[in-house]
């Protein structure tokens, strides 16, 4: 699980072009949207693609994203339970 969290942090930084943000800067329970990392709606769509591409999870209802993408912690838990690759 810890390895997955590390992997997620570096992938998010890479895919979302988060300049000047390092893996160490993101805490497992930090909010990804709003005040935390400050991600926006296009980032949320990009995270849906990331789930599909890297972990074989297809989100059909984008509203589900709201709970899954709360933090690295919630994302890692969801991926662990649902990944197909």
């Amino acid at each position: 699980m810890d390895a997955l969290k590390q992997e997620l942090k570096s992938k998010i930084i890479e895919v979302l072009n988060l300049e000047d943000v390092a893996v160490e800067d993101i805490n497992d329970n930090d909010a990804l949207f709003g005040d935390g990392l400050g991600l926006d709606s296009i980032d949320a769509l990009e995270l849906i693609v990331l789930l599909d591409k890297e972990y074989g999870i297809k989100l059909t209802d984008p509203k589900e994203g709201k709970t899954i993408f709360q933090s690295i912690e919630t994302m890692a838990a969801y991926i662990t339970a649902n990944r197909t690759k």
Binding site: I42, L45, E46, V49
Partner: peptide, 9 residues
Amino acid sequence: YFPSPAVFV
């Protein structure tokens, strides 16, 4: 096949 919304926009 993973079209990127962040590129598409």
